[in-house]
Design a protein around this nucleic acid. Structure first.
Length: 410
DNA sequence: ATGTTC
């Protein structure tokens, strides 16, 4: 008999199938998944991807199919976070030896980094538009009417960043890269989500669900598993808001990609074709899908959908390879794959343990930040991506293997 | 991840 390509755990609830053979899988993440598996509305089982690790609220790298309920913390606050990549007609020999100019052109074209401005001192906010450019305004057009309705219904959204965050990168593990594939084609790839407004929507509904649980005296193994039952007003409100935030995130990536393409053309003084092969996929989101005969809501937090022939992106850390993949439509994973390498070290631990020299060596061939502020993103803070890819051979096949030459971080 | 902060 062929050995199973995944590990199975079951304690009281539904099974947990984990595509984690040969990769680290911490006990804290297992415990978090066991809690999810106890919920009475999980369809069939919970799936864990090879980049699985402990997350705030819900496990990163989890796929949770639910019947008649949704858990807002299982989606998280970075609603619609995901990846976009395009292959260009440029090839490696057309690039200059020094890519500093390309990096700074991208940095000028796309706001990135921490929101500035402290009480008393008004500093310019590096992470948002002061005046959104025309392409951001155009991207906002299809979002505007629905946002007015959301604001009316949920006044908490009134003072959030919204249009001024459309086409902006953010911080942390959000990035923009120029990569080369194994044939020498140049790719542009980026990672970002729904920024301030999606965060506010996520936080607001997670709190709302927790209050509902208290109101109805429903006790949970973990308060972050608070849910909205289908048929309630809050369920409908959440689904509507989360879908809007997912759309915002998708358009955010498109606007940034167009601006990045423009910046690279300008920096190189060359025109080229882009979007020859474009992929834009969420990895923190909820979607209505059909699995094993039922209409379900599938929540993927740190997981990518991988239906038959569906294209996805699995990025490695800032010094590692990334992969453009094609889904194999493996139903047992609810047609899913990992969203990256997955952390092995918390941000705090990485900052304490990894030296600047080590970080510089690990990113020697990349035009990127080499300062203390990015140590929490250093390659050794992540699982080895090759092992992560090996553990999901039955979920996706690799179409392109990319290696970054430029990396912009917020 | 974001926003706010002493």
């Amino acid at each position: 008999m062929k050995p199973l390509p995944y590990e199975v755990m079951q304690e009281g609830g539904v099974p947990i199938k984990s595509w984690t053979l040969g990769v680290p899988f911490e006990e804290e993440a297992r415990a978090q998944l066991r809690n999810i598996s106890q919920m009475p509305f999980i369809h069939k089982w919970v799936a864990a991807m090879p980049d699985v690790h402990l997350g705030k609220g819900a496990t990163i790298g989890s796929v949770v199919p639910t019947l008649g309920a949704v858990i807002p913390a299982a989606v998280g606050v970075d609603i619609g976070c995901g990846m976009m990549a395009v292959r260009t007609s440029l090839s490696a020999p057309q690039l200059p030896d020094n890519l500093a100019g390309v990096r700074s052109a991208i940095e000028r074209a796309v706001p990135h980094g921490r929101t500035g401005g402290f009480r008393g001192k008004r500093r310019r906010d590096k992470g948002a538009w002061e005046n959104p450019p025309d392409d951001a305004l155009a991207g906002w057009a299809p979002l505007a009417a629905q946002f007015e309705l959301l604001k009316e219904k949920h006044p908490v959204l009134k003072n959030t960043n919204n249009i001024n965050h459309l086409g902006t990168l953010g911080t942390g593990n959000h990035f923009i890269e120029m990569c080369l594939d194994e044939q020498g084609s140049v790719w542009l790839m980026l990672h970002s989500g729904s920024r301030g407004v999606g965060n506010r929507i996520g936080t607001y509904f997670i709190e709302k669900a927790k209050r509902d649980m208290e109101l109805w005296h429903i006790h949970l193994p973990d308060s972050d598993l608070a849910y909205f039952p289908e048929g309630t007003e809050h369920f409908d409100d959440y689904v509507q808001a989360v879908e809007w935030a997912q759309e915002f995130a998708c358009i955010n990536r498109e606007v940034m990609m167009a601006r990045t393409i423009g910046a690279v053309k300008q920096a190189l003084g060359t025109d080229f074709e882009a979007r020859m092969e474009a992929v834009n996929c969420h990895h923190n989101y909820v979607s209505r899908e059909h699995h094993y005969g039922r209409d379900v809501l599938v929540t993927r937090k740190g997981a990518v959908r991988a239906r038959v022939d569906e294209m996805g992106i699995i990025p490695g850390s800032m010094g590692a390879k990334s992969f453009i993949v094609r889904g194999l439509g493996n139903e047992e994973s609810f047609c899913s794959c990992s969203h990256g390498a997955g952390r092995v070290m918390s941000r705090t631990k990485a900052k304490k343990q990894v030296s600047l020299e080590e970080h510089r060596a690990a990113t020697a061939d990349v035009e990127c930040r080499k300062d203390e502020g990015v140590i929490d993103e250093t390659p050794s803070a992540y699982k080895p991506i090759e092992k992560v890819m090996a553990a999901q051979k039955d979920l996706v096949e690799i179409v392109y293997t990319l290696k970054q030459v430029v990396c912009v971080k917020g």
